[in-house]
Design a protein around this nucleic acid. Structure first.
Lengths: 149, 149
DNA sequence: TATATTATATCAGGCCCCTGATATTATCGC
DNA sequence: GCGATAATATCAGGGGCCTGATATAATATA
């Protein structure tokens, strides 16, 4: 609760975001995204696009809804990303044979190629982050995410 | 670094973002923002807007460039937020008396009022996050941000 | 069978973040 | 004083995230 923090006058700094945990999380995420974007720039990929391609590598033929759940974003968000990746020629989408509504998504040759090259660059970002983090950092962050959900 | 994870075939999961530290950071940040947005919804504020108002409370008369640096975003990003907050009547902007180019920004009465009410709600989010975090979490996250900058 | 519910895909619009570009003003070096 | 540099503000456009709304297909239920 952080009471009585150098109360020079009685009403200063009711809440200082600059010192909060939320602020630190935001800073870390922003630095991570920017670093990852720099690593991926040569491949013409953004960090979220890279993550979608990873999901498709792990689960070929996944639907829009499935990919959205995996990435913890809305189907609408994933939809726009898939349209973009389709236009870039990295994925291809085709209606499911049995279920009339589902659009199956797969990596193209080009998508697989780009992704395999991107993996190495992204590992660099992960390595730097891990060296600055405590061993239980990832688990703790997922605990925070869970508590706030 | 996580070698040999049930290698059914020799080339599976070259890099699994779902298990990475980067993924955990992203998850935590997203959960935090969504929770904060829910807490702020009644006041018609978003989390980034709330943070800008906090900066202005701490530093009345700050310029666009100054606010951008404080929030670690580009001046263009801050510009669009200030335009929005101005239209909402929460801030007011006026040219500096001496420096012809600088636009000084201040909270309006309404802005101060909304902000003071919002503080309490946001503390709830911070409290939940802190209870799920380790004591050195914030410091460690800023270390990660620094390493990736 | 007919209806209601659920799941999927997708359009529209808004906010936040970025890069790139431009115009204006301050300041520094000559 | 004058030109280069830097700082500030701002326009334009794209990406990723959201909510709200709509259409269609699959499934559960009365």
């Amino acid at each position: 609760m952080k009471s009585a923090k150098t109360p020079s006058t009685s009403e200063e700094t009711p809440f200082a975001p600059q010192e909060s945990l939320g602020y630190a999380i935001k800073r870390a995420q922003q630095a991570l995204r920017l670093h990852m974007d720099r690593q991926l720039k040569d491949f013409g990929l953004t960090a979220p696009q890279y993550n979608v391609l990873c999901s498709l590598e792990d689960e070929p033929g996944a639907s829009n809804a499935r990919l959205a759940r995996r990435a913890f974003v809305t189907p609408q968000t994933m939809q726009s990303m898939l349209v973009k990746l389709d236009r870039l020629g990295l994925i291809e989408r085709s209606p499911d044979a049995e279920h009339g509504r589902i659009q199956r998504t797969q990596l193209t040759e080009k998508g697989q190629d780009v992704l395999s090259k991107a993996h190495r660059s992204v590992l660099e970002t992960e390595k730097i982050a891990r060296e600055a983090a405590s061993p239980d950092a990832a688990a703790m962050l997922l605990r925070i995410a869970d508590a706030l959900s």
